[in-house]
């Protein structure tokens, strides 16, 4: 008689919760292939209700799975694979676009320009360094010697501290005298010219005179 009534309205929450748990336990047993328990509760009406629910559950468990219409699975897979291929192509295009935007590839004109400019700067730097190092080793009579003198003059010109400047002037003066002596000793410079240069030297170094004046 009470089978049609909503159990949650008829009973208090705790009872229903307990019956729900009993039912769940019985269903668990049912799903593991065990037979339906004969009695679940001391209440005969509730036992009958649970039994009916378990029979319904058993009927649902026995329902065969619905089969998808034929061909739909193949169509769905083909659609998925098409999308996958499109996605892969889009990813590849995106990757290429990112590389292109960086401009460092030879595939892009301005990318080529950047790389050539960098190579030119590096090559010029190496060339200049080699020239300066070679010039610093040059002796009078060599075609690189004027470059050495120019480098020394630039160095002196860029030294703004008067005391340091005086020091460098004296050091270079000494270096030039030693260079002349070496060149003469190696027979790369005529002795007479060397003598004349050494005599003229103080007058060739106007900075020296300035230093003397400031002292």
């Amino acid at each position: 008689m009470s089978a049609d009534r909503d159990p949650t309205r008829d009973r208090d929450y705790v009872h229903v919760r307990d019956h729900a748990r009993d039912l769940d336990d019985a269903l668990e047993a049912l799903q593991h292939g065990k037979s339906l328990p004969s009695e679940h509760s001391s209440d005969a009406a509730e036992t009958a209700r649970l039994r009916r629910m378990l029979e319904t559950a058993q009927a649902i468990l026995n329902v065969p799975n619905p089969e998808p219409p034929s061909g739909t699975m193949v169509e769905s897979k083909a659609r998925m694979m098409r999308l996958l291929a499109e996605k892969k192509a889009a990813d590849a295009r995106h990757k290429e676009a990112v590389i292109e935007d960086l401009g460092m590839g030879f595939r892009k004109a301005h990318g080529r320009g950047v790389i050539l400019t960098i190579l030119l700067i590096v090559f010029s730097f190496i060339l200049a360094s080699t020239f300066v190092v070679s010039a610093l080793q040059a002796l009078p009579g060599s075609w690189l010697y004027p470059a050495k003198l120019t480098i020394q003059e630039i160095h002196i010109g860029l030294t703004f501290d008067p005391f340091l400047r005086g020091e460098w002037i004296a050091r270079y003066h000494q270096t030039r005298l030693e260079d002349l002596q070496k060149a003469v000793a190696l027979d790369r410079f005529p002795q007479a010219d060397a003598q004349a240069t050494m005599t003229a030297m103080p007058t060739l170094m106007p900075v020296d005179n300035n230093l003397n004046r400031s002292q």
Partner: peptide
């Protein structure tokens, strides 16, 4: 999980009553 068990109980009760 407790609410699920209660819903299961209610659902089976309704279906059981209908099939009966």
């Amino acid at each position: 999980a407790a609410a699920v068990r209660m819903l299961q109980y209610q659902g089976l009760h309704k279906l059981g009553a209908s099939t009966l």
